[in-house]
């Protein structure tokens, strides 16, 4: 349902993505791992066009995001801002630094987009928001401002906020990297539940245990390309490339499979 094809992205002279193609099936949870600077976060941000890329296309459920290929000329055309904004509604993203709106309460954060972007009536949006808060275990925090919440709580609100738009695809960008270790568990649990419920997701993470337990497929990136991908069992116990074996060595040594 997600199809990325030949995505090339440079920051100035630095070519961060060197032609990446990735497909994700509906309901599949794909975890992207790799060293820092490999382009994992950039890849994620290209999916919903938070980063503009020079070549390649991205489609979700057949709908192009950001760039479309003209059927007659084969030319790659940028879609209008309105079309791009509309297509972003299908994709939910959770960031490493939560990015909640500090001037709004938790509830307001969650209902802002459904009400203003989708036109959902306030009562319905608030009811759904409360359901989502219950899902992430934060029902009692609806009226709080984000500054009063812990990192893990803010992150769970961020997940609820993204889910409130009923996305078809959820993207997670190292969402636990900025959290105290003791708060990581609650966020991963929420994500695991989402995966079990059948949400299509692409997760960039350093949490190898999560990758092992939750991923349907693991993708290893380095230097702007996908080096290897496969099922978690295979990737962890018998990777085909030396680089992957090296990268996972530390994890494997510690948690002997």
């Amino acid at each position: 349902m997600l199809a990325m094809s030949g995505v090339v992205k440079s920051f100035g002279a630095n070519r961060v993505l060197r032609g990446v193609s990735l497909s994700v099936a509906t309901g599949e949870a794909v975890v992207v791992i790799g060293p820092s600077g490999s382009g994992k976060t950039t890849l994620l941000r290209c999916i919903n066009l938070l980063e503009d890329y020079e070549q390649g296309t991205v489609t979700v459920d057949g709908i192009p995001i950001g760039y479309r290929i003209d059927p007659h000329t084969g030319q790659r055309l940028r879609m209008s801002e309105r079309e791009i904004a509309a297509s972003r509604e299908m994709i939910g993203i959770v960031f490493q630094s939560y990015n909640l709106f500090p001037h709004m309460t938790v509830l307001q954060n969650i209902v802002a987009a459904p009400i203003r972007v989708k036109g959902v009536p306030r009562a319905k949006a608030e009811a759904r928001a409360r359901d989502l808060l219950a899902l992430v275990g934060l029902s009692d925090k609806a009226r709080e401002f984000p500054v009063r919440l812990s990192g893990g709580q803010q992150q769970r609100v961020a997940i609820a906020r993204a889910l409130a738009m009923d996305p078809k695809l959820m993207l997670f960008d190292e969402v636990t990297s900025a959290l105290d270790p003791e708060l990581v568990g609650e966020v991963l649990a929420a994500m695991q539940q989402l995966a079990r419920d059948g949400m299509t997701m692409v997760v960039v993470t350093h949490e190898m245990s999560f990758a092992r337990d939750v991923a349907d497929r693991i993708v290893f990136m380095e230097g702007g390309v996908i080096v290897e991908e496969g099922k978690p069992d295979q990737m962890f116990s018998a990777p085909r490339t030396e680089r992957v074996r090296q990268f996972l060595k530390r994890y494997n040594d510690r948690y002997r499979i």
Binding site: L50, A86, E89, F95, N99, F101, A112, A113, R116
Partner: peptide, 11 residues
């Protein structure tokens, strides 16, 4: 980050 968050919600 605030722009990113707002943008990704389809605003």
């Amino acid at each position: 980050a605030q722009w990113d968050a707002a943008r990704s919600l389809g605003m």
